[in-house]
Every structure is written in structure tokens, then in C-alpha cells.
């Protein structure tokens, strides 16, 4: 079971709720994925279409809402969004995203750490989205982050775990759960993250824009389970080191 703050989750797949063609497809895809935690964003009510309300579409008994601060360009904006999210959703959980560069949407490490420090003190359960930087990960952990969420690759690129070496170090060092977020374009990418020992993954686009989002949701759910199972079963070695059959090191000095 995955434990974040004091809440446990059976599923290690977090679902996103953006970019689906309809609420019905989203609901069905999330259901088939098995996700229990879903991210949501905050926006102004569209006064032309006041019935477009995700809270009336998604069952909050079934899904744990994780509001994000998407769109925030600095700590101050993220903190404002955090307060609004708490007021809307009645939840102190927060996926902290601070992305000043609208082109790459890469997270700002300085502002993210600053916002984490403040929001943790205000009582938020902060899950910060971050670049795959091991020292930043430790600094966020020390600041009280409930998880760290390193990106596998730049968001929207579907390239999988490009940051493998760094994510391996992050996983090895972390005391809080590590959730790989962004860049996971295929179930095999999610499985790879889980095999490495990630505690969970967050997937949105790859499911939402698939030819059949419902089937893809299920595929990701299975991949995450398989990857976790493989990690717990302890993978065999890949055999890249020199075979020890003809050692060059002499130990004749030993008594």
C-alpha cells in the first residue's frame, strides 16, 4: 500500500483529468485505470457554460482530489492558487507546480522550494512537481514535502524516463514517496518507473489522447501493477560487469 501523509492508496497510478474528449470518456478511462487519486486544476468559471463542473462529474467518494497550481509562474501565484484550491475543495492536499516558462513548462526549482516551505508551514500536504534533481529532492523533503514528483522527461514529450540516472538517485535517497510525473507516454514507461522503485506515477495526456482512452487507462493500470510487482520481486542482474571467471587481482598476500 502506498502511504502519503496519513492516507493510504491501493493504486499507485495517479490520474490526470485534463484533455479528455468528454466527461464520460474521462470517467470511464479513470475507472478502468484503477486510479484513486486524480489531479484537478483551478480555473475561472466559464460563465458561458456554467454547468461544466468537474466536481459534479467525478465521484469524490471514489477519487481523492489533488488540486494543482498549474499556471503559477512563481511562489506567490502558487500560494494564491493553493488557498483557492483549499477553499473550493475543502482539501489541504496540493500538487505544487511552478512553471515560469510557458514553452517547456519546466518547474522552477527556486520558487518551488520557496512555496513548499511556506505552504507546509500553513498546513498543506505538498506534493511538489520538480525537475529530476536529487539535491532539490532532498531539500524539498527537508522542507516537509509529502512526496517528491520528479519528471521523467519534459511534459508532453512522451519520451519516457529520460532522467533515469537522476531518478535512481532520488529513489535511493528519498524518505518520502517518489512519484514520477510527466513524460510517460506509454505503459512500458510507467512500468519502467515502477521497476526502478518509484512509489507511484502520474499519467494524464497519454491516457486522455489515446485512440481508446478507456483501454489505455487499463493498460497503464496493469503496467503500474506489473512494474511494482517486479520491483518487489527484486530484478535479476543485467550482466554488464566483467565476468569474474579469470580475475586479474592477486590475493596471494593474504595469510
Amino acid at each position: 500500500m502506498l502511504k502519503i501523509a496519513d492516507k493510504t492508496f491501493r493504486s499507485r497510478l495517479f490520474g490526470g483529468t485534463g484533455k479528455f474528449s468528454s466527461s464520460a470518456v474521462m470517467n470511464e478511462a479513470l475507472a478502468s485505470s484503477g486510479a484513486e487519486m486524480v489531479t484537478v486544476a483551478l480555473r475561472r468559471v466559464d460563465l458561458e457554460d456554467p454547468d461544466d463542473d468537474i466536481m459534479s462529474v467525478l465521484d469524490r467518494e471514489r477519487y481523492w482530489f489533488l488540486p494543482n497550481t498549474a499556471g503559477a509562474r512563481n511562489a506567490e501565484e502558487a500560494i494564491r492558487l493553493a488557498h483557492l484550491a483549499r477553499a473550493v475543495g475543502g482539501t489541504n492536499w496540493l500538487k505544487l507546480e511552478v512553471t515560469p516558462d510557458p514553452r517547456t513548462l519546466l518547474p522552477d526549482p527556486v520558487e518551488t522550494l520557496k512555496a513548499t516551505e511556506i505552504l507546509v508551514k500553513e498546513g498543506f500536504i505538498v506534493l511538489p512537481y520538480m525537475n529530476a534533481d536529487p539535491i532539490l529532492s532532498l531539500r524539498l523533503q527537508d522542507a516537509g514535502a509529502a512526496t517528491v514528483m520528479p519528471l521523467g522527461a519534459p511534459i508532453g514529450t512522451n519520451q519516457g524516463i529520460l532522467m533515469r540516472s537522476m531518478i535512481e538517485i532520488i529513489i535511493e535517497q528519498a524518505q518520502v514517496p517518489v512519484v514520477v510525473d510527466a513524460g510517460l507516454g506509454a505503459p512500458s514507461h510507467a512500468a519502467a518507473a515502477m521497476e526502478m522503485g518509484a512509489d507511484a506515477v502520474l499519467v494524464n495526456t497519454a491516457i486522455a489522447v489515446a485512440g481508446d482512452p478507456v483501454a489505455m487507462g487499463r493498460a497503464f493500470g496493469l503496467a503500474v501493477e506489473a512494474g511494482r510487482m517486479a520491483y518487489e520481486a527484486v530484478l535479476g542482474a543485467s550482466g554488464k560487469h566483467a565476468a569474474p571467471s579469470s580475475p586479474e587481482v592477486g590475493l596471494e598476500f593474504l595469510k
Binding site: G16, T17, G18, K19, F20, M26, T39, V40, A41, L42, R43, R44, V45, L47, D52, D53, I54, M55, F65, P67, N68, A70, L84, A85, V88, G89, L202, N204, T205
Partner: peptide, 10 residues
Amino acid sequence: VELIRFVGGG
């Protein structure tokens, strides 16, 4: 006045 609610997002 700002009226804000949750929308889909990742």
C-alpha cells in the same frame, strides 16, 4: 469578483 472552480488538469 473571481469565481473559481476545479476543471480537468494533470
